[in-house]
């Protein structure tokens, strides 16, 4: 597909074209920028739900149930599911789709994304990937993170509502780690409620929450059994409540805040690359040698280079 045809197909919300655009974005192919410039006005229109929590907690299964549930309510849904890239080979086995066969049969667009070395539970390009999926005209985009526990905090910079999934029986050693990740949840889900000790976990979470900083809207705890779909309607009620709480005002403020952060990042990235190229490898090597031989200290060296 050439560029013109791809743009034309994107305007028709063609699945193949959206899938191809996602690949271009993932590969940081310059063509993706050109295309996103052309379709930018059509993006940003879906409500973004992020789901995080430890591996095996049932994130994918919840996404499956929730997405199906939304489709039955007449909503259009897209899914991005991030899994880790192997640091050794650069390859990945992306297995989230395995748990999303129900959503798949409901005609939902699902894309498995490898983290490609990015930390924070997402891929570096996730925000743009969401924009690409939005070209299909979704009401909701659901993003599942890698599930690396505490490190998975980037999702809050992306989603309008963040759901943190916990499960009973992961042992006490993870208890301490939970505090950090709990804070980012607008909604906490205790999945695998079919298991005996899940009540206790819900009580523990309640206690941890009461110890933490008070939020304007207290994060509800929702028990679910994702495999049977039990509790998914309650989860949906809580998502709606949060969405209503955000309203137009907070919703826009939050997004603006996130965009500012993003823009600053992009500017510093671009400036950084430009400057590094400008300075050139020769000068970097020479100055590094000077620092190594204690001819100059690194602080003065950096100041000198930037002033040039």
């Amino acid at each position: 597909m050439n560029k013109e045809r791809l743009i034309e197909k994107l305007s028709e919300a063609n699945v193949r074209a959206v899938a191809r655009l996602i690949t271009l974005i993932e590969n940081e192919n310059p063509l993706s920028e050109e295309i996103l410039k052309k379709v930018w006005k059509e993006t940003g229109k879906s409500y973004i739900i992020g789901i995080t929590g430890p591996p095996g907690a049932g994130k994918s299964t919840i996404v499956d149930s929730l997405a199906k549930f939304l489709v039955e309510k007449g909503k259009k849904v897209g899914v991005l599911a991030v899994d880790p890239t192997s640091p050794f080979s650069g390859g990945a086995v992306l297995g989230d789709r395995l748990r999303m066969t129900g959503a798949q049969s409901s005609g939902i667009f699902i894309r498995s994304v490898a983290s490609r070395g990015h930390l924070g539970g997402l891929a570096a390009t996730t925000r743009l990937l969401i924009n690409a999926v939005e070209l299909l005209g979704n009401d909701y985009t659901i993003v599942e993170t890698v599930g690396a526990g505490q490190g998975d905090v980037e999702i809050v910079k992306i989603s309008d509502t963040t759901i943190v999934v916990e499960v009973p029986g992961l042992g006490d050693e993870v208890q301490a780690q939970k505090a950090g990740i709990l804070e980012i949840g607008d909604i906490l889900v205790v999945n695998k409620s079919d298991r005996p000790v899940s009540d206790r976990l819900a009580r523990e979470l309640q206690m941890m929450l009461s110890l933490g900083d008070k939020k304007d809207l207290e994060s509800p705890i929702v028990p679910t059994t994702a495999t049977t779909g039990e509790g998914i309607d309650e989860l949906w009620e809580e998502i709606k409540k949060h969405q209503e709480y955000l309203g137009k005002g907070r919703f826009k403020d939050n997004r603006l805040e996130k965009l500012k952060y993003e823009l600053e990042n992009q500017i510093s990235q671009k400036l950084f690359t430009k400057k590094i190229v400008e300075i050139g490898d020769k000068e970097i090597t020479k100055t590094s040698k000077d620092i190594l031989n204690r001819k100059i200290d690194p602080f003065t060296a950096v100041d000198n280079i930037i002033k040039e």
Partner: peptide
Amino acid sequence: RALRDSGMEVIYTG
């Protein structure tokens, strides 16, 4: 897994 170990991204659908 073998394909992953050679650097590919494998979508496993079961």
